[in-house]
Amino acid sequence: MDNGSVENGFIVDLSNAKNTSQLIYELSSILDLPEARNKKICLKLGDTDLNQSQLLSIKALIDSMQGEIGLIDTASAQTKAAAENLSILVSELKNEVEVEPEHQATQEEIDTVLGIVTTVDENNEEKQENIPLTPIADFSEVAEAGGLILNGDSKYVMMDTTGILPDEQKNHEENPESLPTLYLNRTLRSGQTISYEGNIFIVGDAHPGSELIAKGDITVWGILGGIAHAGAHGNVNAKVRALKLNAIQLRIAGLYARRNDTYNVPYVQKSNEFTPEVAVLENNSIVIYKKLRRDE
């Protein structure tokens, strides 16, 4: 196995793919992401057996999506041999990210910036454990609302509510885990409001025009399109989670963010591929993480 490193890399983990067609499907949906453009794609193929022509078509797919194949990580001898025949670098993937000292980034953010260098450094076991739980790709994104901007236009912008909201509300920190949870298995439609002194968990979509107001967290196992207010009594630890965060407004404690006018939500979500998103309060602004990793 070669030693080497790839700069400006982008790791795509396909080790969970059950067959070649699923693998290619997942890969193409990931390469669609703006984050993957002009990157050296590093593929984690697990123990999938690929022959030379299959590997060649994957290479062609990456080329066609303005990418470049950096290296592949495989446990399969057949794949390894095929890659070597095509002179594709085969290596074991390790994540090494350089973090600027003044920027105290979380692990999610680190993955966001994704300056990935791969080496065959065996001492790096710790980082290896942090690999996402059910990964397709090892990426996560900070969409932001007033904080970090990755792709130019942000999805949310903070609202200036001075003079609009009363400032009597005191912020406090509370662990939402200690609160009761309302569990609903339904679609929330326009005009419907769910207000609860605890956490709200909805299996289904919350349509535009609906309202969710919770003392604790709001989690929507579906598309969130209405207004969501987590930590409505001022709990700054509250979060809003959804498979797709399209909320017209996101409110956490006393902070409000509105969806950016330039952000276009498709009339119908055609894709069945979701990247769960979570909105949290950070430094007086609502920040959205797209993530595949579970909260610690």
Partner: peptide, 15 residues
């Protein structure tokens, strides 16, 4: 059954 906010593109600003 409000709609006027949508036509003006102001839905996201309503508090």
């Amino acid at each position: 059954l409000r709609n006027l906010d949508l036509l003006l593109g102001l839905e996201n600003r309503i508090v």
